[in-house]
Simulated assay, not measured.
Amino acid sequence: MSVTKHTISVLVNNQPGVLQRVSGLFGRRGFNIESITVGASEEEGLSRMIIVTTGDDRTLEQVQKQLYKLIDVIKVIDLSAHPMVARELALIKVNAEPAARPEVLGIVDTFRASVVDISPASLIVQVIGDNEKIDAMIELLKPYGIRELTRTGATAMIRGIVK
């Protein structure tokens, strides 16, 4: 069995402890959660979790079956089994003395990112995109000195209309 990256959507009742139960199930099955985002869904009272993990297909299928056994889980979809759109947001605080700013701003423009804060010695850059885009931008900003970095984790959706 090959180990692949999976992006899973889990629709749940918005109840205390659901996140803990869902993440605990992954841990018990030996799946590492690379990222997890949770927020409101299109239905009031329901939240959507987007979980990015790696593992073989057979184990993932078992995790999906176990998720359905949790009382607050409504629906589980392996988004990565379909054409999907996935995005992540990162905020990057980078050293940017006035002399280096034109170079840093060139990188920001190239990645269609934006500067959301400026201080005398640094900039905070916001970049939105897929994992590879954010990784590439971070690599290009490293030589200037990254002071702080935070990422949201992926959020995703299947393309088109799902029946």
Score class of each variant (00 low, 15 high):
117 D>M: 03
132 E>W: 02
136 A>E: 15
28 R>W: 00
157 M>L: 15
105 L>S: 00
116 V>L: 03
129 G>W: 09
105 L>W: 01
57 D>R: 11
1 M>F: 05
91 L>M: 14
80 S>Q: 10
30 G>Q: 05
151 R>D: 12
86 A>L: 03
131 N>W: 06
67 L>M: 13
154 A>Q: 14
37 T>G: 02
55 G>Y: 01
93 K>I: 05
23 S>N: 07
132 E>I: 08
148 E>S: 13
100 A>F: 03
123 L>I: 03
36 I>A: 08
73 V>F: 10
40 A>I: 02
64 Q>M: 15
120 P>L: 02
87 R>D: 12
94 V>H: 00
6 H>Q: 05
13 N>H: 14
160 G>F: 09
121 A>T: 15
116 V>W: 04
124 I>W: 04
136 A>M: 06
61 E>D: 14
123 L>D: 00
7 T>I: 15
114 S>T: 13
127 V>L: 07
31 F>I: 07
112 R>T: 06
44 E>Q: 12
107 I>D: 01
101 R>L: 06
140 L>K: 11
56 D>F: 02
58 R>Y: 06
19 L>F: 12
158 I>Q: 11
33 I>M: 06
1 M>C: 04
136 A>V: 02
103 E>V: 02
160 G>W: 09
67 L>E: 12
126 Q>V: 03
112 R>F: 08
142 K>L: 06
69 K>S: 13
150 T>Q: 08
53 T>S: 15
106 G>L: 03
75 K>S: 11
162 V>R: 15
49 M>V: 11
126 Q>S: 15
52 V>N: 02
10 V>Y: 10
103 E>Q: 15
54 T>C: 03
112 R>N: 13
73 V>D: 09
141 L>I: 10
34 E>R: 05
138 I>D: 04
87 R>Q: 14
93 K>P: 00
148 E>L: 05
54 T>H: 11
69 K>M: 11
63 V>A: 13
12 V>R: 06
39 G>Y: 04
128 I>K: 08
104 V>R: 00
22 V>A: 04
14 N>Y: 06
131 N>R: 12
156 A>F: 06
15 Q>M: 08
35 S>H: 07
40 A>C: 01
55 G>A: 10
161 I>C: 00
43 E>W: 07
92 I>P: 01
49 M>S: 11
69 K>E: 13
123 L>E: 00
160 G>P: 13
148 E>Y: 03
132 E>T: 14
94 V>N: 00
37 T>P: 10
68 Y>Q: 10
150 T>F: 02
138 I>F: 04
17 G>L: 05
2 S>G: 04
106 G>K: 12
125 V>C: 01
42 E>F: 08
79 L>P: 01
43 E>H: 11
27 G>T: 03
127 V>C: 14
